[in-house]
Write a protein that binds this DNA or RNA. Structure first.
Lengths: 211, 211
DNA sequence: CGATACACTGACCGTTCGTTCAGCGCGGTG
DNA sequence: CACCGCGCTGAACGAACGGTCAGTGTATCG
């Protein structure tokens, strides 16, 4: 059965509410984004939101999952590119920078959900739904790193720590890019990250000396 | 003039309120930490807090500045150690890991203030007081990196981006350590970070091949 | 065209939280 | 001992917010 007219309208509403939520959270921050303002941003009444989402928590949660799903789709492609470890790493970093560049307003929501808030019951709920998304990202990168270690392409180090270091380090650069009026081309920052993580920043003594 | 008795009592109150604030924020998160609970944690009445802090914002702000001051004191020492760039870098990373290890509960507050919240007026106020603290840390590290670049010890890269990458990457590892029951010794993680940033993770082809 | 269904509205409710302030108890003073 | 000053208290207040629901407007159908 094709989508009925109601479904189309409903999907449109859900989508525009989620987009409004992302914009408001981006402006005011997670804690100060009110249902009233999200409704105004979406051009509807507050009550209408509750026809599509049970409560505020569900709105935030679903919005997060919908958008982070986009990131994961891109990463899927990057993870499955054949080629050297370096090429795959470059593809992964490029996917991340590209995603946040096109979804700059989502960044605030993403950042807020890193550490759960509220009563311990709420914290547990948030952990169940949002943390797995972060974990999945870290674990997949860690797996790639582990493979490269076993293949002798990369030094033996704790893969999880390395993945965290890389992801959060990149995130910091994304954040810097977002705050700049005229950031350098994306590829330049990708190169900085990839070359730093692969080769380090030190100039080896043999190269440094005139010899 | 020596400290009067009143001053001593007053300082004690201020300090214990700030410590209570850090503990409650650590448990509940910034947005859900109430004045009531902070007062209970400090063993005083809610109204008493207002004898020492104008309002909630000032409490948070002063608490942040007092504690981050501790970190900066340690970094001062690390920045001024003589020796090679590698030694100074190691001292800086060690100082950061050590600080957050001894102030684990402060981490939540630190993280929350990275991105300002609330109305644009509140955001401007937070930016004026908290962001300079982050900026200062980034800029100082960037300066060290620049020096090393000019000295030919380090490749020419954007120092600010490198500093951000390094600081946030380390922060991710701090966060991981805080969530672990039995984290590895601090020195191990310091080594991971320093060796990765200096030499990278790749095993160079000449070393890898049997040749 | 009148009846029915239903998405939508926004005033309203209960709750929570920051902030205030009248009053309390206690240590010091004459 | 009576009085006073003052640090402290916590009930009370108002603002703000999430969530509700009786009512309204409109599209659809007989």
């Amino acid at each position: 059965m094709a989508k009925s007219k109601e479904d189309v309208v409903s999907e449109f509403r859900v989508q525009s509410i989620q987009e409004a939520a992302i914009r408001v959270i981006s402006r005011k921050g997670m804690a100060s984004a009110t249902m009233q303002e999200i409704a105004e941003e979406a051009g509807i009444a507050k009550g209408t939101i509750y026809l599509y989402f049970r409560d505020r928590e569900e709105l935030v949660e679903k919005t997060f999952e919908t958008t982070i799903g986009e990131l994961h789709k891109r990463l899927d492609v990057a993870f499955e590119t054949d080629g050297t470890f370096e090429e795959r790493l470059r593809a992964i970093i490029t996917a991340q920078l590209g995603f946040f560049n096109e979804n700059r307003e989502f960044f605030r929501l993403y950042h807020s959900l890193r550490m759960p808030e509220g009563t311990s019951a709420q914290q547990r709920r948030q952990k169940r739904t949002c943390q797995p998304q972060f974990q999945a990202r870290v674990d997949r990168l860690a797996k790639i790193l582990k493979q490269a270690m076993d293949a002798g392409e990369v030094r033996q180090l704790d893969p999880k720590r390395l993945a965290l270091f890389l992801i959060e380090g990149s995130t910091a650069i994304v954040l810097e890019r977002l705050s700049e009026d005229a950031p350098p081309p994306e590829s330049e920052d990708v190169e900085l990250i990839v070359s730093t993580i692969l080769g380090g920043i030190a100039i080896s003594k043999s190269k440094r000396s005139s010899h």
